[in-house]
Design a protein around this nucleic acid. Structure first.
Lengths: 244, 244
DNA sequence: CAATGATGTAATGTATACATTGTTAAAACG
DNA sequence: CGTTTTAACAATGTATACATTACATCATTG
């Protein structure tokens, strides 16, 4: 479990803890003990505390009654609801962008990303095509969140997406890990294009409906992965957080 | 500035700091210094730090580059967007309650609150009618958030409402502080009733649209208060956070 | 036997000394 | 004169000792 990133103890502890939680080392409901973690990491309680506080902000931990922190646990329906909310908020971002008008520069940017995603489907046999799609997909969703220029909308969306299983990347990594030219990915890309088109044409209601449906699509894909069982779902981000 | 609530230093510090920020003692953008605050409150840096960390979770502070915390500042358009998001999320809560069905008990509860709000308009000359409306209004919104039974939806809504100017109470306290039988309050109450009816009849789209419009209505009322100028807006929760 | 209270332990809460860093302003250099 | 370096200071970061509280366990009592 990589120790990486940052110069100070708090950053390292935050990163380490986050990784361990996401990868299931501390299952949902586990109470995290400052002393134990501090010893284990070879640092004092202070930065451990600070790290837990930040992870609580992220939504990975919650403050326990009587002090301390507990790893947040999510049910299957929580996952569904979190993705629903992402869809609702992305829908709002898209609608506001359509209604208020998106700046030319940002529109050009998001169109460029859509065009780049297209190249991932080209049969040039790129081994990295899948990773590229994943990367560009995240970029698309970030740009969409920023398109209407509202810092508030952007911030809330970032918050929701910080739950690993609710992030747009979960869709890509969840469903279809072998075939980059999977029909689902093609379908999703068609939705990307439609969303941008709706925003450009100032069709607020259409933009909102499409963005929502786009998230629903991701949800359906995740559901399929769930049904396949734990083996298939192993590589899915944050799967370890989910308790039945 | 009351020192109230809780037995330990962290709670007191959190409460005090929150009050001071909301009441404008530390305007948006102010960097909060641990040492100064600790001295001022007669406690050590540790609980001050902890308090700031919690207020960052609430969204009142943000972590500054290079460490420390800064009071978050909001523009007028941030207020508009925050209320928009509240409306969108309340709309989602209402829609899901309609689609998935709300439990009988909770429905009875929210209907009881609606009935109680009606009594605030009775001409029995209650001096406390206005406060009662405010209290019951908050209760209505809390119940609406809980109606669909999704902890995720409820949590996100609580988060958004924790910004004082985005809370449902801001509408009541903002626009019309003198006349409990104000037409706006009557109108809002009519919306409450319609929302419940839509949920009960499983009309998801209607419930969502109504809940959204209800928040928009609050926003309009706030806008009017803004236009009246700072004098009128003085008693409005969190007004001090807003920088032009 | 149930309920309640005492008691010990293990956790978090708090204070404080010290370390590190980041920022500012002055001084040295080109 | 502008730029860059450096040194001092003031802030946060960290460790640690000590205080307090919460919880579990067991004893006591009705």
């Amino acid at each position: 479990m990589a120790e990486a990133k940052g110069s100070n103890h708090t950053r390292r502890a935050t990163y380490d803890l986050r990784q361990k939680i996401i990868h299931g080392e501390y299952p949902g409901g586990t109470r995290l003990l400052e002393v134990a973690l501090a010893e284990q990491m070879g640092i004092s309680r202070t930065p451990v505390r600070e790290a837990m506080s930040r992870l609580a902000e992220e939504g990975l931990l919650e403050r326990a009654r009587g002090g301390g922190f507990v790893v947040r646990s999510f049910s299957y329906s929580d996952v569904v609801d979190a993705i629903e909310i992402r869809g609702v908020l992305e829908g709002t971002a898209a609608r506001l962008a359509a209604e208020r008008g998106a700046p030319e520069g940002k529109l050009r940017q998001i169109k460029a990303v859509v065009a780049q995603i297209d190249t991932c489907f080209e049969p040039s046999g790129q081994l990295r095509a899948f990773d590229a799609y994943s990367e560009l997909n995240s970029e698309f969703h970030d740009l969409m969140a920023a398109l209407c220029g509202s810092a508030i909308v952007q911030r809330e969306l970032e918050r929701v997406k910080s739950l690993p299983f609710a992030s747009p990347a979960a869709f890509v990594l969840g469903g279809h890990r072998d075939d980059p030219s999977d029909r689902s990915l093609l379908m999703a890309q068609a939705q990307h294009r439609a969303i941008v088109s709706a925003i450009e044409n100032r069709e607020g209601a259409r933009a909102e409906a499409l963005a929502r449906e786009h998230a629903r699509f991701a949800r359906g894909s995740l559901e399929a992965t769930f049904i396949k069982g734990a083996t298939e779902a192993e590589g899915l981000p944050g799967m370890a957080l989910i308790v039945r």
